[in-house]
Structures are given as structure tokens and as C-alpha cells.
Amino acid sequence: MSAIAPPATAETAPPTPDYSDYQLVPARHPWRWVGTVLVAAGVAAIAWSLVTNPRWEWGVVAEWFTAQSVVNGLIETLKLTAISGVLGFVLGFILALMRLSSSPLLVSVSWTFSWIFRSTPLLVQLLLWYNLGYLYEKISLGIPFTDVRFFEAQTTTLISQFAAAVLGLTLNQAAYSAEIIRGGILSVDQGQLEAASALGIPAWKRSTRIVLPQAMRAILPNAFNEIIGLVKGTSIVYVLAYSELFYTVQVIYNRTQQVLPLLLVATLWYVVITSVLSVFQYYIERHFSKGALRTLPLTPLQKARKFFTTHVAASPTKDAR
């Protein structure tokens, strides 16, 4: 009905009433409040059970959390993570460059490396490195197919538990990080390289100053995933009886039979390490997003400050108006 005669309504429409004195009321969301209350109740129930259930044995957890042997294990875990993480990413970077080179030989060597180390279980790799002495009694460095030897040693003396652990974790890590770094480099626009070579910037500087800083944005989230995976992945070297964090708590609970509390000790430490890494991740990613975003995201500290200055302080004055 009304749609049939629009021109007429336009002429006869009553004048718009003046709303300028009315107060604005935002929409209410009652179900949001119901949901919030339910979730809060659930969280409170879990927290309550954690605190009140005596079988969690928090006393035992507290007692072992900072025990010397546990701390020593923690240090070994951090050491393994740092060494294999750094070496793994350096080797991964080289493998990524090989894979992107125009030499078919380098490409296939890099591809084969990733293929082998990604398709065998880490556990098998570690045991293989540790038992390398069974396969090759001596390791020597010399000129192939001649008797010239610069260096020769028994494999078993050369490959300790630590060496086997680092070797296994590093090579495995390199295979994965190579793919991550390659993906990051490929995500940088080809025009960037072209512009850099048109400016006469040498190849190595083109990679390190133009391509890598931009590739980092794509590399970092995955790289931190890998590092966090590696922190917990080091627990697998318990098969070599290497006394890192996880092996240490195993030894302790086998003696004291307090299995769950000691597993909690290890878990809490892993949570602490991951949390610290996440903070680093946030700030490093923020650093490399310079120029990629029009305005940098606020740091948590700045966010909190903004919340208190705009929300808390300003809302009463808004209501007053």
C-alpha cells in the first residue's frame, strides 16, 4: 500500500520530531551476562577442586619445584632447547637457501634432507645417533678413497648422550625450520628483490636487509611454535637416560612413588618456559611488524593503561551527560 505512492508521502510526511534532548541508551545483552556467570561458575568449580582435593598433593609439588635436582634438570632442558634451536634454525636457513637456489643438485639435497628427517620418528633418530657406534666403529676425517686421515676417533667416545641428543634434535629441527623459512622468503614480493638489485645492492645484503626482515613476519609465528614444541620435545631424550627435566622427575617419582605431583612439577616448569617465550614472541613480532601495519598494536601495558583511562575513568562522566 504505502509503497505504491512514495512521492505523495514525501510531500505529506509529518515534520521529524526534535530528539535532541533524548538520552542515548546502548543495547543491553542479558544473555551475555548469563553466559559470563555460567563460565565463571565453571572456572571457580575447577579452581576449588584443584585447591581442596588433597590428592593433588600441592605440598609435594612445592617441595620439589625448586629442588636442586629438578633445577639441574631444568637447566639441561634449557641448554638442549637453546643449542638445538639455534643450530636447527641456522641449518634450516642454509637448507632453505639451497632449496631456493637454481642449482638442481642443491635443491634435491635439501629436499631429500627434509624428506628423510620429517618422515622418521624423532625417537628412532635419537636411538640411531646414540647407537651409531654399532654401525660405524670409528669416525674419521680425511680425503675420501685414500688413506689420508686428519682425525680419527672411536664413535662411542665421540657420541655421548648429550651429543646424540643435540644431533638428533638439531637435524630434526632443521628439516622443519627449513620449510618455515622457505615459506617466509617466498611470501616476500618479487618486486622487492628487483628494486634492490636495480639500486645495486649486493645479493647477500638483499637477503639480509630487504627480504629477511619482511619474511620474518611470516616466519616468526611458526618459528615460535617450533621452539615451544622443541622445549617439550626435549623430554623425549629421556630414552637416552639424559638427565633433563622430564627424566629427572621420572627418576624421583620412581623412588618416592609420588607420580602425579612430580609430573605436575615438570608440567609447571614447561608452562613457565612457554609463557616467557610467548612474551618474547609478542614483542619480537611487534618489532618486525614495523611498516607492515599503519599503526603498531598496543603492548599489553599500554592496553591496560588505555582501558583504565578511557573505560574506568571516563564511563561515569559519560553517564552523567
Binding site: 614480493d189 622487492q192 628494486a195 638489485s197 636495480a198 645495486g200 645492492i201 626482515p213 611498516g291 607492515a292
Partner: peptide
Amino acid sequence: REKDILKQRTHIGMVFQSFNLFPHLT
């Protein structure tokens, strides 16, 4: 060799259709 080509290119400026500025630098 690439090194000598790069040296020659420093005498020849180029401006691209899609600018190709380095986004991570001011």
C-alpha cells in the same frame, strides 16, 4: 659478474610502476 653489473646499475636509477618501496623501512 653480478658485482660489476650492480656497480653499473648505481649509475642508472629506476622507478617502478608499483613503487617497490621497502615496506619495513621509513
